[in-house]
């Protein structure tokens, strides 16, 4: 157990995929304090998803030391994951998939409820609360495959929130969404951050959608953090302009 105030602390982290020689991310040093709202931006293949999955232990780092909630990630993987809500990049859902939205949201609590235990009333209360928070309570008994991209994204978000997480990791939550849905999800993230004071790390390739409450931006390129600073400083920097290269705000 490491005693400090950081919620996440990564020291010289390097993550290599099995069978690969070159690390996807390397020399990553990162400190995140409780309650922070951070955007991680970078081009495709920069290692953004790898960074998120190194934090929640889905990928094992090959070098350095990583701590989440003061616990070493490698040793306390499953314990840590119960407190981390993760929303993966929008994926294709079979329209005939036999799952109801409420069951998917409940599945976020699986680890928290624990093996050999059944969902109780308080677990369902949490499900209804988080579905209400994202405005999807009317969709509880709808099949998951029938949702639009934005609705599906909100269900995944509500699934992560049902976990009652201390930390929320979001991988491209705005991808495949139209402008209106993006705005909705952005407003939602701001509200969740304000209301629940959760630490949020969001991976995005679109600078136009850095939520307004997000005060810190980290720029990742070729597996390395090249910039880390306040929103104002990063957005005004020359490097960002050169990376974006007048590409409509998209990397």
């Amino acid at each position: 157990m490491k005693k400090n105030s950081n919620l996440i602390e990564l020291v010289n982290i390097e993550t290599v995929y099995e069978g690969e020689r070159l690390p996807v991310i390397y020399d990553v040093n990162l400190k995140v304090e409780p309650g922070e709202f951070i955007s991680i931006i970078g081009p495709n293949g920069a290692g953004k998803t790898t960074l998120l999955e190194t934090i929640n232990g889905l990928l094992t780092y090959s070098k350095g030391k990583g701590f989440v909630f003061g616990k070493e990630i490698k040793k306390h993987k499953s314990e840590i994951r119960k407190e981390i809500g993760y929303v993966i990049q929008n994926f294709e859902m079979d329209p005939l998939a036999p799952f109801l939205c409420k069951d998917i949201v409940m599945s976020g609590r699986t680890g928290k409820i624990g093996t050999f235990r059944f969902a109780r009333k308080k677990d369902w209360d949490k499900v209804w609360y988080s579905m209400g928070l994202v405005g999807m309570i009317d969709f509880a008994n709808r099949p998951i495959g029938k949702l639009s991209g934005g609705e599906f994204q909100k269900i995944l978000l509500s699934r992560a929130l049902a976990q009652n997480p201390k930390l929320l990791l979001l991988d491209e939550p705005f991808s495949n969404l139209d402008y209106a849905s993006r705005k909705q999800v952005e407003t939602l993230l701001n509200r969740i951050h304000e209301k629940n004071n959760i630490t949020i790390l969001i991976v995005s390739h679109d600078l136009n959608f850095v939520p307004s409450r997000c005060k810190r931006i980290i720029v990742l390129e070729h597996g390395k953090i090249i910039m880390d600073g306040s929103r104002e400083k990063i957005l005004k920097s020359e490097i960002i302009n050169s990376i974006f290269n007048g590409n409509g705000g998209k990397i």
Binding site: R81, K82, Y86, A97, S107
Partner: peptide, 14 residues
């Protein structure tokens, strides 16, 4: 149910 919906998400919830 969690695994059949998405294995990675299930893993990420512990």
């Amino acid at each position: 149910i969690a695994i059949m919906f998405n294995r990675k998400l299930a893993e990420s919830s512990g």
